[in-house]
Nucleic acid binder design. Structure first.
Lengths: 207, 207
DNA sequence: TATTGCCTGTGAAATAATTCACAAAAATAT
DNA sequence: ATATTTTTGTGAATTATTTCACAGGCAATA
């Protein structure tokens, strides 16, 4: 079981490796990786050790191979089905992001409680009313959800998603969603909340 | 110097206290706070201890007083000036969020490299071309920035913001921004990246 | 005003994560 | 072929964070 901080860094590393590969780099040392990610080289090596391999070399890591390794460990190759709940400004903006359309995540459903809105949005993604969240998530076996609804309905939406069998949630609503089930993962992306954390860090750092 | 995990939790606690206060609650125990935030009661108490007070009671914390305490420690009362760089779909959606307009953060500038776009957006917020980021940030003494530009220009934007004297950055671009200055704080809010972390956590948890 | 039951504050213990240090292996240079 | 440099992998040490345990204070009750 890989500790969470390591998972986080390995995901960042994975993207970096993709970028490097696109720029034609083939090998790179832990020191250089560390520099690019803003962490120590030791840390990079420890994280890679969690993947459970042992193939030492004196010319750094083979980028293709390392990518493959991470990808296998976390199954990044298989496409994941995702949905968005809340098709306001933020929700639709996220829905149309390029980096979400082309990649390993496939947004296959959008939900909103406002039926009129569903009719006015033109999108290639199937849209459904909010009351059908549980049913659609279950039927289409959707694993991941992005919540972009007002704070007051976020918990209700989360409960419906969980009933449908969702595995992970990205929550943009400015509220802490409660989960009893330890098997479901949530990441809060509360914008004003994060600004507040930044502001607190700034104040905490001076003096 | 308060450790980062504690700052994070104290910020979440602060919002919870605001919500509780609005619903008319006046006192609450560490146990109940913990339950609502999904952390242990010990943890709550330890975090509060970092604020440097000592006023024990047998009926929990006074919500108003505790809010005040956190607020003073991190100066949540003074209004912070912020800006948004990148006025595409995501940037404008964030700019118009209600929870950002009314609260302690005041978005006073928007930037985009596309001059035509600046003219078509109707907003009460002053808009500027991207080449003036450094100058405007410095002149208006803007502390916080939200980056919502494509990955390829994010580093360049960050450098300009830092030159202008920015203190904290919320980065929505799917790329790790490098900072040499330890006095500047950054929080990455990369949507596809976070989906990938969730997906990795899910795979890591099974078996 | 005693007594009882909560609840906080906090030093100590336990756990988790990071950093270090160095042996061993591979590549490169001589 | 040998020496030198580079770079990884990993157990150990360090540091950070969380959890525990309980003393001591406050409030409520009778």
């Amino acid at each position: 079981m890989i500790p969470f901080p390591a998972i986080n860094r390995l995901c960042a590393l994975y993207r970096l490796l993709c970028d490097l590969q696109e720029s034609g780099v083939e090998r790179i040392s832990s020191a250089d990786l560390g520099k690019k990610l803003g962490v120590g080289a030791h840390n990079i090596r420890k994280d890679i050790a969690f993947l459970g391999v042992s193939s030492s070399s004196a010319s750094g890591y083979d980028i293709k191979g390392l990518k493959q390794l991470i990808s296998e460990k976390f199954e990044f190759n298989t496409e994941k089905k995702a949905c968005i709940v809340g098709l306001g400004r933020l929700g639709t903006a996220i829905m149309e992001r390029k980096d979400l359309c082309g990649g390993e995540f496939h947004i296959i459903a959008g939900f909103d409680s406002n039926i009129n809105r569903l009719e006015t949005i033109s999108s290639s993604i199937s849209l459904y009313p909010a009351y059908s969240i549980t049913e659609v998530v279950r039927r289409l076996r959707i694993e991941l959800a992005i919540i972009a609804v007002p704070a007051c309905v976020a918990q209700d939406v989360a409960d419906k998603l969980i009933d449908g069998g969702i595995k992970g949630i990205l929550n943009f609503a400015p509220v802490i969603v409660k989960l009893d089930n330890k098997e479901i993962f949530i990441k809060n992306m509360d914008i004003s909340g994060e600004l507040r954390v930044l502001s607190a860090q700034i104040k905490n750092s001076i003096r």
